[in-house]
Design a protein around this nucleic acid. Structure first.
Lengths: 414, 414
DNA sequence: TTAGTTTGTTGGATCAACAGACAAAGTCCG
DNA sequence: CGGACTTTGTCTGTTGATCCAACAAACTAA
């Protein structure tokens, strides 16, 4: 399974010998990634390819630095032991970079998903403005690219995560309300700052990339339909369905935070009333759980610390806190039920502050969903907490680059 | 583009010469379907395949009865005129059959989408019960299969449309509230009644199939992300995204009628309160627009006739009717905005009674969507009326069978 | 030590696409 | 009217990837 982003409908295209080979290289590489080290004979058996063909494919993948020979396989009792073939992470890296309201972040992952380099810098983006912010981000990316080169790996690409509407075809940023940015060609700006680099550089929605990261963690369990909900000041979301990220016609899909679910809700930052995030966003929780002058409401403090304060009160059994959490959990379930009715995901993944407060949100959430979903038993939807935290988007960005390699191993030079 | 139903994530699988050939046969066949009759040379140019290869592929497709040679191509001024190659509809047929609350229906479509046979029979399904209903349906299907055989075409398969939850993997019916049916293996029951036929027989959700039919009409305009909303007593829905039908983990996706959007809404047939269909279903419209004893509320009359009555009043400018339509249109837009925020479709297709009353529903619907969708201009979502009427589901069922042929032309015997 | 089992490679067969040459069938122009 | 030019579709030979069958290598079990 590729962590395919499904940007365009998969109209299969005319194929020749080269694409046949490319396809089978991809099949073998992903087979080893998903099922672990194994002998050539076993790969042949499991994929249906001929033994001779697998030998040839593995040889090419080894030459490209994507696979390597491991130990002898001692698991089968009889006969000549096989040579294990395993993923060689060190050959290639993908880079993810993120612009968010109060920080910039980068990560470089190798093919096996191991962190090669990472950095996170607190920055007041709204105050700095686009120009200076992108200057700073370009420095971080350049530093990461250099780190990848030093490590000896090839760079598969760089993906920028932005909290806003990114147009699907062009990758143009249309609107980023939380940054206070309007229309802006982030990709072009960054390419200019990076000296028109040769590697592919793409821009994507932050929540979509976080969703891909969550999917990458869960696909081992052959789970290919999920919804990610990230709780922050706003509420972000992303959908994977049938193993593909749901993008929609223009790439704006997954904007769950502004579903109109609460007609009597408060005013939303977007100018409307009744958006889901007005009842499940962090602001709504704090409003319900605390007084005006409570220190955990202080936006100048670190979000993690403020959340820790809430957790402490919940653990201590503070009635007001628990009631607020119950309330948010129920509203989470009302919106969640809408999502489950439409999308029938196998898992609802909680990220951001929803994950931190999961122990108190899950019970009312699950109950609200079961009560409101037509399919029996909530359509079999599991509630899962993501432990990726704030690194989700950058990891997803790096992984989308690596996925290009898994989809077409020939893009790696010998 | 295949009208692929995306039942399982598209993990590409090991390929050999045979699958290479199969793929290219499919590419040529779909190219002619989507872009119309053209010469071999032009197909080669447009697909990137070699001229010689296209000749060979076309020859095989002609032999299988899927393409045929047409007139000489007089469009290009210079040089030797080409021989046009066009779709040969007559070779293969797909069959769709539908069980619904008050009728059974069948249709047979040839490869070009032309109707070879169709029939619709009024039946009170809830009263008859599953056994007798399936007996009657089997008779209709057998009659249709015979008609296909008489017409000289090969039968690609039969798809049954059911208004209920159909499990994705097995095709088992889990629940059909409107029929009053519970868990039932419709496919097995029908296979037994049809004498264990050799052709593939599948079961699918009625709204999903209607959605595929709508997609088949719109994909010419390279529109690959849409939501269909069918208004009846209940509200059905289906989603195509990235050219694939959205099914979800268990195949229950698209149940938009029971999204909890109206906290203060009426009780729904499903036992909950506030489901979308309680404010946009036909019952809601009639409740708002008419008195208790109004003849258009009489469920014993034909739905089309009752709708004609509403249309007449709206055209005459009846204030109460217009106000009710305005109200339903706005509620349609509130739920529609949820769908557009999540799915970002390029089109919202109105089917069933929504299409009939489209002229009065569209304005408030469009306004409500624009007001509530985060993406500028409603994410560029068009409102489209479907003119397929009650034939949508059976057409989609037939087309899903034909699509198997477009995806793999070698399943047709020579 | 021998029989039996499994692995991975080798050489030849097969199959499908490709490249280039070429005849066929038309237009354009002097 | 005839030659130059253009385009189509077929034909022949080449290339390249997979498959098949045979086989040597490496190990276990008796």
């Amino acid at each position: 399974m590729t962590l395919t982003d499904g940007r365009r409908p998969g109209s299969r295209v005319a194929a020749d010998h080269v694409s046949l080979r490319r396809n089978n290289l991809s099949v073998v590489l992903r087979h080893v990634r998903d099922l672990g080290p194994r002998s050539r004979a076993r790969i042949a058996e499991e994929t249906g390819l001929n033994k001779a063909t697998v030998s040839s494919l593995v040889a090419e993948l080894v030459e490209r630095g994507l696979l390597r020979e491991g130990d002898a396989d001692s698991s089968r009792a009889l006969g000549r032991p096989g040579q294990l073939v395993e993923l060689d992470g060190t050959g290639v890296c993908g880079v993810g970079a993120e612009i968010n309201v109060d920080y910039l972040a980068v990560v470089a992952l190798d093919l096996a998903g191991a962190v090669v380099h990472e950095k996170r810098v607190p920055v007041d983006v709204a105050h700095l403005g686009p120009g200076t912010t992108l200057d700073r981000l370009a420095e971080l990316v350049q530093e990461t690219v250099t780190a990848v080169e030093v490590s000896g790996g090839q760079l598969a690409g760089v993906t920028l995560a932005v909290p806003g509407l990114v147009q699907g075809e062009t990758g143009e940023l249309k609107l980023a309300p939380n940054l206070g940015w309007g229309e802006l060609s982030v990709a072009e700006e960054m390419r200019a700052r990076l000296g028109m680099p040769a590697y592919p550089l793409r821009v994507d929605n932050e929540a979509n990339l976080a969703t891909l990261a969550a999917y990458a963690e869960l696909r081992d369990e052959s789970l290919h339909d999920l919804v990610l909900l990230t709780g922050a000041v706003g509420v972000g979301g992303g959908v994977v369905t049938g193993g593909h990220l749901l993008r929609g016609g223009d790439g704006y899909a997954g904007e769950v935070g502004h579903m109109p679910v609460a007609p009597a809700g408060h005013a939303c930052g977007c100018g409307r009333t009744g958006c889901w995030e007005t009842v499940v966003g962090l602001a709504a929780l704090l409003h319900k759980a605390t007084d005006h002058d409570d220190p955990v409401r202080d936006p100048s403090l670190d979000v993690e610390q403020r959340l820790a304060g809430i957790v402490q009160r919940a653990e201590a059994g503070d009635a007001r806190t628990l009631s607020a959490l119950q309330d948010v959990g129920t509203w989470l379930g009302i919106g969640g039920a809408i999502l489950v009715n439409i999308l029938n995901p196998a898992a609802l993944v909680l990220g951001g502050y929803f994950a931190v407060l999961g122990p108190w949100l899950e019970a009312p959430l699950e109950q609200a969903i079961r009560e409101r979903v037509l399919a029996p038993d909530g359509g079999g939807c599991r509630i899962v907490r993501s432990d990726l935290g704030f690194a989700a988007a950058v990891r997803g960005g790096a992984q989308i680059c690596l996925d290009l390699v898994f989809a077409d191993p020939t893009i790696v030079n010998i």
